[in-house]
């Protein structure tokens, strides 16, 4: 039977849920979306997108190393992601930091290729690891994802407040006695482990898209913490599920729809912020021209 989209939303959802593999995929995407939205909000706040992508790449040498050593793949992912996170964490200039992250990623690829060539066998397709195949997720994997998500969210709940202050104003936070460097390392570790555990199941593309886009859109729309986190989660679920749904009905890959939705929504959010910003500054100028005290307050 070929699925087809109707105008009846209830009918469409029923059709979406008709197969177990689709139910698993939607559950997995939902779990990843919630976790990625929260972890990613801090990633965007801390401007660590490049580090996030680099840590997601570490799944590749991790998998190759585990296959070579005959260990479970998960061990490889965790070891390589943790090593990457700890290498990246550190106090450096912007220039050095970007060079270090780039080098870590390149070493990840290079080590992966060498290990793969030593292993000799066919691992899984590199493209699957890069782009993922969420349609093959099993019920047990959904459980694993949920467990990882719970751990990551618990860690962030524990660190959250301190991490926020350490991210927004590091010198002030340090002066207030917060361990800024330890917090930075701890966050990268959470980011790395969360990415590693999920990328092996759903592919790097979906995880990275859901880490970045919902949080980036939420940050465009509101600077508030609670509202931003909530908005980020809602957007992530929306992007993940609509992307999967469109993929189901059109037979084109979900990664394409997820990333296109992400780009379009981000462009819209940035556009509205610019429009609002433009309108607000025009208003301020007019008030100032009229000599209104409120205009001065806003302008000053």
């Amino acid at each position: 039977m070929n699925p087809h989209l109707t105008l009846n939303l209830v009918q469409d959802v029923r059709e979406l849920l008709a197969y177990q593999f689709m139910v698993n995929a939607l559950e997995a995407a939902g779990v990843v979306a919630v976790m990625a939205a929260v972890v990613g909000w801090f990633m965007v706040l801390r401007r660590e997108t490049f580090a996030g992508h680099t840590l997601s790449v570490m799944a590749f040498p991790g998998a190759a190393a585990a296959a070579l050593a005959g260990l479970p793949l998960a061990v490889g992912y965790f070891v390589f992601c943790a090593a990457g996170a700890l290498t990246i964490a550190g106090r450096r200039s912007v220039a050095q930091q970007s060079a270090v992250i780039g080098t870590v990623q390149a070493v990840g690829w290079a080590a992966g290729f060498v290990l793969l060539s030593l292993y000799g066998g066919v691992l899984e397709d590199l493209e699957t690891l890069l782009f993922g195949s969420i349609l093959g997720v099993t019920g047990g994997q959904v459980l694993t994802l949920a467990l990882v998500a719970a751990c990551a969210l618990a860690a962030l709940a524990l660190l959250g407040r301190r991490l926020f202050f350490a991210s927004v104003d590091p010198p002030l936070a340090a002066a207030g006695g917060l361990p800024v460097r330890t917090l930075a390392s701890a966050y990268l570790l959470v980011l790395g482990l969360a990415v590693a555990a999920t990328a092996q199941i759903t592919g790097v593309l979906l995880v990275f898209a859901l880490l970045l886009a919902p949080a980036a859109i939420a940050r465009e729309l509101t600077p508030r913490i609670g509202l931003g986190l909530g908005l980020s989660v809602v957007l992530a679920l929306l992007i993940a599920w609509v992307g999967l749904g469109l993929s189901y009905f059109t037979n084109y890959p979900s990664g394409f729809f997820v990333s296109t939705l992400a780009l379009v929504l981000f462009a819209l959010a940035r556009g509205t912020r610019h429009l609002r910003g433009g309108a607000a500054s025009r208003l301020t100028r007019r008030r100032r021209a009229l000599g209104s005290p409120r205009g001065q307050a806003v302008g000053g």
């Binding site: 996030g52 992508h53 593309l205 990275f208 898209a209 886009a213 980036a216 990333s259």
Partner: peptide, 9 residues
């Protein structure tokens, strides 16, 4: 990052 994700997609 967002452009990058889209290109991957």
């Amino acid at each position: 990052g967002v452009v990058f994700v889209w290109v991957l997609g």
